[in-house]
Nucleic acid binder design. Sequence first.
DNA 1: CAGATCCATGCTTCCAGGCTATGGATCGGA
DNA 2: TCCGATCCATAGCCTGGAAGCATGGATCTG
Lengths: 286, 286
Amino acid sequence: MDLDLRLVRAFVAVAEEEHVGRAAERLYLSQPGLTKQIRRLEGVLGVRLVERQGRGIRLTPAGEAFVVEARSLLRRAERAVAAARRAARAHGGEVLVGFVPPIPGPVSVRLAELDVPLELRRVDWHRRGELLGGGEIDLCLLPLPIGPGPFRHIVLWREPRVAGFPTRHRLAGRSELSIDELAEEPIVDLPTHREYWCVDPRPDGRSPRYGPLVHSVEEMLEVVSQGRAMCITSASVAEFYRPPGVVFVPILDIAPAEFAVVWHPDHLTDAAAEVRRRLAPSPETS
Amino acid sequence: MDLDLRLVRAFVAVAEEEHVGRAAERLYLSQPGLTKQIRRLEGVLGVRLVERQGRGIRLTPAGEAFVVEARSLLRRAERAVAAARRAARAHGGEVLVGFVPPIPGPVSVRLAELDVPLELRRVDWHRRGELLGGGEIDLCLLPLPIGPGPFRHIVLWREPRVAGFPTRHRLAGRSELSIDELAEEPIVDLPTHREYWCVDPRPDGRSPRYGPLVHSVEEMLEVVSQGRAMCITSASVAEFYRPPGVVFVPILDIAPAEFAVVWHPDHLTDAAAEVRRRLAPSPETS
DNA sequence: CAGATCCATGCTTCCAGGCTATGGATCGGA
DNA sequence: TCCGATCCATAGCCTGGAAGCATGGATCTG
């Protein structure tokens, strides 16, 4: 009768890894502990979910059916939590503003000048969608582009994009660059929005050469400082981070970086709408 | 981070009762225990959900928002469990048939003659919808009418409806009746489908007089045996139950009782479809 | 066939959660 | 205004169960 969401989480992890040991590691749990959690869950359901399959495990048909519902259930749980927190914030007139660092200085100043009671929270780039969609944050400040979705945004700030090089790179001493000069330079690969940040295709219609795949700004700067690739990023990154062994040079002939405030139209509280208006009186863009 | 569904259940109960003591009783829990569960849930959410309001409690705005999501979350949890069990049954070729007693004898015989591996489960009348809708049972045998919903059904059996009287009632000795003879008799009230089972309106266009409201067959028979009202039910009830102090008399001039097999079109496994076909080769009715 | 890999089981420890008793706050009636 | 009734919150004690460690057993690989 009583389903424990921790067990559901455990099962989903096992189903994804198809390996109890790795899943246990991911959950910061011992392997026997995780095995027993799965057994408990099976006990509650009265159904076998996984079977030993030689080395490793395999989901039973029931497990396959359950994992689908389980994922959706966990999302709903997050949503329920977020709904309660959002209602509490809305009632207190508070606004929770997420941001994907760095925030350009001028935007930061404008934010500080509002006298609305607001809270700031750092948001990982890859979680921005679920946080906004689930209503866990009211607004989010981030660099465009954002992916598809029901979100609305207004651009708050534009600034040049810059190239990042290891210190000893042949172009590291330049004061400005054209994108055409970077045709042969390997560039760090990104999981999303490669077209924009890697400028692919280049003006001549060709694709750049890709280096290692990175999942965060920190990783990207590390890879660059090691000399394994160059990167293209916003001027604010150059200002905000001071990575040793990396120098930045403005690129003159590509579109600027754009920083926007983004929100989910269904979850816009009155206070959040007010903040949004005072940050950007201009009309919204989809 | 980790939401415990038991706490969610506890909170929903408190929200419904607006009274910790009563909710605790309903959950078979001590009052302090329940209070602590609510506090724990509030701790997890980081938000107050209830406030003391003089004698009793009141939901905060966050509580109001959460209770809506919470209910939906609990339903999803039930659905997830049901999905796993159904998949396991489907894989084993098993069929779980619910029934709202009584099952007419001939239907019971037909069911016994199938050599499919099937399991029978008694289902409370008021839970038939959620059980079928959630996929916890594959088919359900029950008396019509069923309420609105996506369900499909085939009538398996028809039989006369009968009036139930206390033994000393003036009509208790009759061998048959017309509905018109019951115009002045108080009849037990039902939460749903009153039109059909209480024959309201009567052929003359008027409504019957209503007696106590009952929620189950057992309650109904008890009320009748106490002489507080009469009832109209199916002949199978007269056969299946033998309540002391109640006698049954057929009513000739109203539509018969109909027993049907019902299913949810989205949750019909192959094996269940086979059982359905062999129970009732006739074409389905919406 | 031996070794490696990986899940299952037995045993022990420890903490979370439940209950009883009691305190504290509010409401209603005299 | 005061007293009693009602109801939620807190404190302290105790038990059940969940987690970890060590080890066994099954399967695959070279």
